[in-house]
Design a binder for these strands. Sequence first.
DNA 1: AAGTATTGATTGAATGGCCATTCAATGGAT
DNA 2: ATCCATTGAATGGCCATTCAATCAATACTT
Lengths: 221, 221
Amino acid sequence: MDDPVPLKQKKNPPRTASPEERRRQLIEATVTSISKHGISGTTLARVTQEAGLSIGLVNFHFESKEALLKATLQHLADEHRRLWIKESSRPDIDAAAKLRAIVDAQFHPKVCNRRKLAVWFAFFGESEHRRNYRNVSRAVDEERQSVTAHLCASIVIEGGYVGVAPHQVSQMLEGLFDGLWLNILMYPERFNRRNARDQVASYLHFCFPRHFQTGDSDPHP
Amino acid sequence: MDDPVPLKQKKNPPRTASPEERRRQLIEATVTSISKHGISGTTLARVTQEAGLSIGLVNFHFESKEALLKATLQHLADEHRRLWIKESSRPDIDAAAKLRAIVDAQFHPKVCNRRKLAVWFAFFGESEHRRNYRNVSRAVDEERQSVTAHLCASIVIEGGYVGVAPHQVSQMLEGLFDGLWLNILMYPERFNRRNARDQVASYLHFCFPRHFQTGDSDPHP
DNA sequence: AAGTATTGATTGAATGGCCATTCAATGGAT
DNA sequence: ATCCATTGAATGGCCATTCAATCAATACTT
């Protein structure tokens, strides 16, 4: 039983069943269900129906509903981190461009859409799930703030700005990100990705006028 | 809270109370329960136990759990609105002071504490409750943004500021308020009322340097 | 190749627990 | 005596989880 299995057929054609594929399907269905019905309205029956699978599969591929939720959160957190890391790690751009990339990632359609925002705020909404969120995202959140703080520090030095505290700017950005996300989720007619980005841009223009131009887009009707 | 009445008598607390009083008690208990257990963990059994009343009372004084939740939200919204309206309506202060008063109200301990923030975010977290939130708070939220926008416009004229769009500042403030609330709720060691206020102050200092000094406000933990 | 065993994935009915709501009975005030 | 407030057991519905049975794919045997 602990013998290494001879895997000469690694390239097996898709079996009628899949290992990781099922988990992915279930997580995807969970995101959809949470965005429509909230966490408490997300029953295993709904998730599995959404995924087109039978109800027993959740406790087979995940140990419990709780574990499914945690995996869903982890999935979103990974996806988000990958996005801003990728864009802001390019060696060919300067600090201001990297900071801009982080902002853009925050409001990238892949991450910042009502379906996924609903999931984030679902986890923010109950203390039990907030604990999960902290476990999963605290390090990522702190990492992002730390990175932006360093970028701000570089920009301050580069531009010789005075009276701008990098750490404070980075904390402000963290607050803004979450607040604009909430506004987009809550009042989508008044707030959207574009003017959220413009808001942030206008703030950065105040902080670093020689590195950030003020928002270019037209006022939304 | 505590009555000066002798405590250790078996039947001393009034056995029947006015409907208003009972509603208040139940709403208070609901806030406590939601902050501890979330909305889905807030069962009528828990609420009534917290209030020291029997379970049947909720459906007597409110028509349903749903109605109790709505009333709780309304209660918080009213309390919040009363606070910033009161402080910012004083006729003896100028626009900048009024704007400062709105900011202070947003982070006043009576409103901005983890117990009540948890309730707000509980309602943000599920689409069904978000609908309730919108019904109850949309007008208030828009009113507040409108008021701050007008105050910003006054300040712009007064101070002759150029390149500052009042509406954009007010939208930014709305975003900041929510975002800082969330950060305080989520990471209370890194974010608190005071530095939240300082964050906002530093932003307003950028916008209106001659009207707002950078965060040197009186300590108010 | 064909047949058989083994392992792993899938199904959904059954189980037991929790919950909002109801309501008949009781208590207390006027 | 009447009316309103209060109580909490009973009801019925929903839900996560379990598990025995079933099915599919691969490995093993002849």
